[in-house]
Simulated assay, not measured.
Amino acid sequence: MSKLSEQDIEKRLLEFPGWDYYDDAIHSEFEFENFKDCFSAMSRIAFECEALNHHPEWTNVYNVLTVSLTTHSKNGVTEKDFKLAAAIESILEPEED
């Protein structure tokens, strides 16, 4: 898997509103109702990270989850990062009633 060009990354980001590209990574921030909901989402995401064998750089402060995705072995963003971003978006998608 090769590192994507900045142009390719910007084009792919059109599919991911709320994600930005800087510092050789794609980044997003998610806000939840409370700490428990945020931590629960992180736990669900962790299972997907293990399945993909790709792990985010992330922080959690109370109800906010900040995520950065990069492929360290390629020194930048690859398709692997977009695959994980899509999985995160799918996990965090609001449930329809």
Results as ranks from 00 to 15, higher is better:
Phe16Arg: 04
Ala86Arg: 15
His55Tyr: 04
Asp37Ala: 15
Ile88Trp: 01
His27Ala: 09
Cys38Lys: 05
Glu93Gln: 12
Val67Glu: 00
Val67Asn: 02
Phe16Glu: 05
Leu14Asn: 10
Lys83Thr: 13
Glu15His: 11
Lys11Val: 08
His72Met: 08
Ile91Ser: 03
His55Ala: 07
His55Pro: 03
Leu92Phe: 02
Phe39Thr: 01
Asp20Gly: 06
Ala86Lys: 15
Asn75His: 10
Thr70Cys: 07
Leu92Thr: 02
His27Thr: 12
Ser68Phe: 00
Arg12Cys: 04
Glu33Met: 10
Ala85Cys: 07
Asp23Leu: 13
Gly76Leu: 04
Glu10Cys: 09
Asn63Met: 09
Glu57Ser: 11
Val64Arg: 15
Glu50Tyr: 07
Gly76Met: 07
Ser43Leu: 11
Glu6Arg: 12
Ala51Trp: 07
Ser40Arg: 15
Leu13Phe: 01
Tyr62Glu: 06
His27Ile: 12
Arg12Pro: 01
Ser43Phe: 06
His72Ile: 09
Met1Leu: 10
Cys49Gln: 05
Pro56Ser: 12
Lys83Ala: 14
Asp97Ser: 13
Asp8Ala: 10
Val61Leu: 13
Glu10Arg: 14
Ala87Pro: 02
Asp24Glu: 15
Val61Gln: 11
Glu57Gly: 06
Glu29His: 09
Trp58Tyr: 12
Ala41His: 07
Glu96Lys: 10
Phe47Cys: 09
Glu89Gly: 01
Val67Arg: 01
Glu95Gly: 11
Cys38Val: 07
Gln7Ala: 14
Tyr21Asp: 05
Thr66Ser: 14
Val77Ile: 11
Glu6Ser: 09
Ser73Gly: 01
Phe47Arg: 12
Phe82His: 04
Ser73Pro: 00
Asp20His: 10
Ala86Asn: 14
Glu6Tyr: 05
Met42Leu: 11
Gln7Cys: 00
Pro17Gly: 10
Ser43Ile: 09
Asn60His: 08
Asn34Cys: 12
Thr78Leu: 10
Glu79Thr: 03
Asn75Phe: 06
Phe35Thr: 09
Glu89Tyr: 01
Leu14Thr: 12
Ala46Val: 05
Glu95Ile: 13
Asp23Gly: 00
Glu33Ser: 10
Arg44Phe: 05
Ser68Asn: 11
Ala25Met: 15
Ser90Trp: 00
Phe16Pro: 03
Phe32Val: 04
Lys3Phe: 04
Val77Asn: 01
Ala85Leu: 02
Trp58Gly: 06
Ile88Val: 14
Asp8Ile: 04
Arg12Glu: 01
Phe30Glu: 04
Ile88Gln: 02
Val64Ser: 08
Met1His: 09
Ala87Cys: 04
Ser68His: 12
His72Asn: 08
Asp81Arg: 06
Ala46Arg: 05
Phe32Ser: 00
Val64Trp: 06
Arg44Lys: 15
Asn34Leu: 10
Pro17Thr: 12
Glu57Ile: 08
Lys80Arg: 13
Glu96Cys: 03
Leu69Thr: 03
Thr59Arg: 14
Phe39Glu: 02
Lys11Pro: 02
